[in-house]
Write a protein that binds this DNA or RNA. Structure first.
Lengths: 196, 196, 196, 196
DNA sequence: TATGAATGAGCTTTCATTCAT
DNA sequence: AATGAATGAAAGCTCATTCAT
């Protein structure tokens, strides 16, 4: 009955951690509340004390991901310097951040359809703002002549973030490349493809 | 009570079609057998006559996707001509094919974890062969000096197919670009990033 | 596991019968679906095959009561003859019918608040029509001079049906009086109180 | 978070008041302890400080009702004067008292089966004593020749109190008649039906 | 006197699947 | 080839109650 989760970690945190791990491993619907609470070493009642529902748990995971992403992108987009450098830095960073929180991102792209319609809408809107932020950087580069302008900036974002999202399908921490190395390569490919 | 599915379409086909649509829309676990058979205008017994289980239905969808992809890639990889042209053609084609069967691909990348472990392994292996096929094309280009060689060909494949897989998240038939247009743009970006 | 309910009685009927008995005995909320299906000798799935929900079961019990009551009152109100005789006959009959289906009526007055608001409204409306039917008989008597007119007919109905509803609280088949005897006495009291 | 209940009202009283209101509105089983304590503006611990259990709350409501009824009947039965006058006064009073505490009486007749068997027995016994008290008045009238004797006094009590209990189902303070008016009418009907 | 985190048992409901017909 | 009644297991969730503080 006692689980791997450290006993002294606050219950709420432990529940979110185990839920994240299990949702990434077996999917949201494939994970029962019983499995989550057993892994966290508590009973169902405890979970329902902290979260309104299983859906609520998922919602909180989404909120955490969105918060993290927005925070990081802001940091890089606002840095002074040539736009190409900023795009590169942001591109590397988003990959490093993604592989550091791979479970979160696996859930993010696989379980969107499990969210309540409203929540889903809110998440998509927030995500869209994030993409627009990145797109604006690309646009800035195109206008400055640093990037080619014959590809819609919007499409470049979808192109690049596809690669980012897909990391969850193949990247392994134990693999031959670190997250940073992958980030550098991907950023290289992106910037090369944007050369005027 | 009568469903939209045409009555004279063979039952088996109708079941797979409705299942594909529903799995893509609501997820595998979120779709009940009852919903599938109702949409197909038959009863459960009929479904269990044609398919061993709900999992079996999913397995067949995966088989169909794999068959389709392999078939298409073969066609382009084996064409004579400069390797860069072949890569470009294959790249465009994979995107066109993907958007033409978007539901299949949405399911493919979202529901892998629902397959029985063995099936999952088989699907991944088949998928890997497919990637290797594409990777070999890239390698061929690198060896011929047509592509830059400072990025692992493997990584290029993961990079590009990430963008392909992600189509299901944003591409809409009613959107501003056709599948072919997106394919051309993406192929452009890929080839530009591989320029030596 | 095998219960008292006769095996060859149709499952649906058996479920309604046992539910009625148990709801009357222990209340709607105090009776679990498990208890009902165990008593009927089937499993939960069978119940949910025939009824949409536990609430649906209750709804059907209400429908049965209303149908029965309306049917009986119609029969007596439409009979030719002096109005006093008709009121008396209807009064006796409603009591005989009530004690013959005592469980139904115990549930009727105790569990109204468990129905979904809409259903509750519909039941009340039907019930009101029933009361109005009876009230109209009283009114007819008042107009004809057969009954005193200084008490609102509406109130007479509430007065008399209170006594009827209350039967569930004290009447026992094994008691000293039969349903018919109680009916005769109550009808006597009612008609005596209406004497001009 | 702060509830309607006045803060300075003793907690215990407030809890009973809100419980009474909620039990009458939604039933005993349909009301959660959380709802009661929220309505009273306290937490669960507070409730369990004053009451041993949720059942205990219900038990106390029954005790309050029984105390009130007995007290009132005593007052009227012991008054000097003709028996018919005393019966009439008691009958009017029981109705006035009932409509003044309608929630209490709604609970009384609807939730009896929720009490622990022993408590239920005790409540029924106390209630029986109350009825016997009233029956003895009727008997006294019959013996004195003031009332007809061809109806068992016991049955007269069941007849009349049925009407009283039923008040909870239809009487509304905002309706056309006051409690006293209804009481006068009902007492009229009762005495008329008892005329020799 | 009162809090609120946590329990544990039980609830209604869903669902893939089976099987006699 | 197909029906639909019935199963049995498991799911998400609720709730009265306890207890350290």
């Amino acid at each position: 009955m006692r689980a791997a989760a450290a006993r002294d970690e606050p219950v709420r945190r432990r529940l979110m951690g185990e839920a994240t791990r299990l949702f990434a491993e077996k999917g949201f619907e494939g994970t029962s509340v019983q499995e989550i609470v057993s892994a966290a070493g508590v009973t169902k009642g405890a979970m329902y004390h902290y979260f309104a529902s299983k859906d609520d748990l998922l919602r909180e995971i989404y909120a955490r991901v969105l918060r993290l992403q927005t925070e990081r992108l802001d940091r890089f987009a606002d840095t002074p310097g040539p736009v190409a450098d900023r795009v590169r830095a942001a591109a590397v960073d988003v990959i490093v951040t993604t592989v550091e929180n791979l479970d979160d991102f696996v859930i993010f792209f696989r379980s969107m359809h499990q969210l309540a319609p409203e929540t889903q809408k809110a998440v998509r809107a927030e995500r869209r703002r994030y993409h627009e932020r990145f797109r604006d950087l690309v646009l800035e580069g195109q206008r400055a002549g640093a990037f080619r302008a014959d590809v819609p900036a919007e499409l470049v974002v979808d192109y690049f973030f596809g690669s980012v999202h897909h990391l969850g399908s193949w990247f392994r921490a134990a693999g031959p490349l670190t997250g940073r190395q992958v980030g550098e390569h991907f950023a290289d490919l992106l910037l090369a493809s944007l050369r005027p």
